[in-house]
Amino acid sequence: MPNFDGFSVARAMRGSTRFARVPIVAHSSLAEAEIMERGLEVEIDAFYRKGESLHGLLQMIEYLAPVRSL
């Protein structure tokens, strides 16, 4: 994202009536303390480290946004 970073996108989503309640997961390789501090400021819901199991990431997404059956 040449003009925006994930924090800018999260901030815009939280300011939007359409996307304000969509769960946001930060999937990053940046230092955890930096991500968490900046992420809390823009109301990121969860943090997941790049390089960790994708299975764990998918479990986190399912927990935050469970699929509802009809």
Rank of each mutant, 00 (worst) to 15 (best):
Q59A: 10
A46E: 08
H27N: 10
F7E: 04
S16D: 02
G6I: 05
S29M: 12
M60Q: 14
L58A: 09
S69M: 13
K50S: 10
E32K: 13
A12Y: 03
D5G: 10
V67S: 11
V22F: 02
Y48L: 07
Y48K: 09
R18P: 01
M36Q: 11
L58E: 02
F19H: 14
T17I: 12
A46Q: 01
G56L: 09
V67A: 07
V67R: 10
V67G: 03
P2A: 13
R21L: 11
L58Q: 05
Q59M: 08
A65N: 15
P66G: 03
A31T: 13
R14P: 03
A20M: 02
S16F: 05
R38D: 05
I61S: 01
R11I: 00
R14Q: 11
H55A: 12
A31Y: 14
A26L: 01
S8H: 15
E52Y: 14
N3H: 15
I24T: 00
R21H: 13
R38C: 03
P23I: 12
V42M: 04
L64S: 08
T17Y: 07
I35T: 08
G39F: 06
L30V: 02
M13W: 00
A10Q: 02
R68N: 09
K50C: 09
M60H: 07
E32Q: 14
E52N: 15
A33G: 12
I24V: 07
G39Y: 09
N3I: 15
M36Y: 13
R18D: 11
A31N: 15
R49T: 06
S29H: 14
L58R: 03
S53W: 01
I44C: 05
A46C: 07
V25S: 03
A20V: 04
L40Y: 04
R21Y: 04
I24W: 00
V67Q: 09
S28F: 01
A26K: 00
N3K: 15
F4T: 05
T17Q: 08
E62N: 12
A33D: 15
M1S: 08
L58W: 03
R14N: 10
Y63C: 05
L70C: 02
E43L: 09
V9P: 00
L54F: 15
S16W: 02
G51E: 08
R38L: 03
H55L: 11
R21Q: 14
D45K: 04
E62R: 09
S29V: 11
G56S: 13
H27T: 01
E37N: 13
S69E: 15
G51I: 09
I44M: 06
E52Q: 15
Y63G: 02
F7V: 02
S8D: 15
A46Y: 01
S16Q: 06
E34M: 14
E37S: 14
R68F: 01
L64Y: 11
E43C: 09
S28R: 04
A12N: 10
R21A: 12
L30E: 06
I44V: 14
A26E: 01
R11C: 07
K50R: 15
R18N: 03
G56C: 08
H27D: 06
P23Y: 10
H27M: 05
